[in-house]
Simulated assay, not measured.
Amino acid sequence: MSSAANGIPGDDVRVASGAKTGRIDVHAHFLPEKYRSALVAAGHAKPSGMPGIPTWSVEQALTTMDRLSVDTAILSISAPGLHFGEDAAARDLARHTNEVGADACRNHPKRFGLFASLPLPDIDGSLSEIEYAFDTLNSDGVVVESNHNGVYLGDRKLDPVFEELNRRHAKVFIHPTNPHCACCQDPTVLPPIGYPFPMLEFMFETTRAVFNLILSGTLERFPNLTIIVPHAGATIPILADRVAGLSPALGLSKPLDPANFYRALRGLYYDLAGFPLPRQIGPLLDIADPAHILYGSDWPYTPEPLAIDLAAKLDASPLLSSALRSDVMRNNALALFPRFA
């Protein structure tokens, strides 16, 4: 049955050159109703200081995907995650959320993938959910926040989870969340300088988490992980030299070898959700493998008109060669997720 017969716009409303690319979107969010209710109950009716919780449904997603020329979107939960203080409630919410995502995948196997949510920082609950997500739901990977109730990625407390993910050669999508500091814990209050967390703090949360994964030796201990970093690497390309230069003063048990440090950065994957043009792509290409750059829309947290505009700018940008654009929009993701071919 055609898209038009399903009430989904056809190619005439797609982003101009996107119809030629069949994008694969690795940064696409979903919000089951039970998750929306849990956010509101936990005081996150305006998550991370944003105006409100966007609406989401499978039908909405398919319509927007067609308008963006997205063939496949890999669904994930965004900030602030789903652990709001009680392990049992977080386990229940993770299981429900993953079931909803898996249903979308079963009903539309070429249109949706799933990065399963974990009830972190609950280790035992997360290990159980990893087993269920991969062995029963056939998830494509997992999503983790930059910190989980103050436990940042790279903390040794998370090693059992990373060890199991490493055993499974898992894809791990990182998403930033609210900084964990005393002045940022009230979900009804904006950060001290008064701007929503996604505007500034998310960039530094991503950077903090990724550098800690490297400096803590986590990525070296668990080399089978495929890590996807959001938002064009945030401030990682700009701060990489500073981190490498100052690392000898840290007294690390194993000194940071600059060559290995930059090799680790090049081994990561990076999506282009957000505002990579015109200034972020250049520094990103200085540190990243071009074969590791992926498309991301960040819909529905990025409203559809803005997502369409950002995709059109990527399609038209002279900073991306035709070959690189094709790789970013589809081919690089297919190398990671060949089932969507």
Rank of each mutant, 00 (worst) to 15 (best):
A341V: 05
H169V: 03
V58F: 06
V189K: 12
R167N: 06
A335F: 05
T64D: 10
P300W: 00
R263N: 06
T72S: 14
L225T: 13
M65F: 00
A323V: 15
G150W: 10
N149C: 09
D66N: 13
L62C: 05
I228K: 04
T206Y: 06
L272T: 12
Q185P: 09
I74K: 14
P119I: 03
G101T: 06
L294Q: 05
F275C: 11
L118E: 02
D122S: 04
D140I: 01
F340A: 09
D66R: 15
G267K: 12
A311M: 13
S37T: 08
K157I: 04
R14D: 09
A116P: 05
A234H: 09
D309K: 14
P54W: 00
K34Q: 15
M199W: 01
A38E: 13
P230Q: 10
A16V: 08
S37D: 05
F340S: 15
S139I: 04
E220M: 14
L256H: 03
G125I: 04
P32G: 09
P109Y: 00
L153V: 11
G267V: 00
S48C: 13
R168H: 04
P80E: 10
D298N: 10
L239R: 02
S139K: 07
S17I: 04
F197T: 14
L190N: 08
T206C: 03
P196D: 02
V58K: 09
P187G: 13
C183Y: 12
L114V: 03
L239T: 03
K157Q: 14
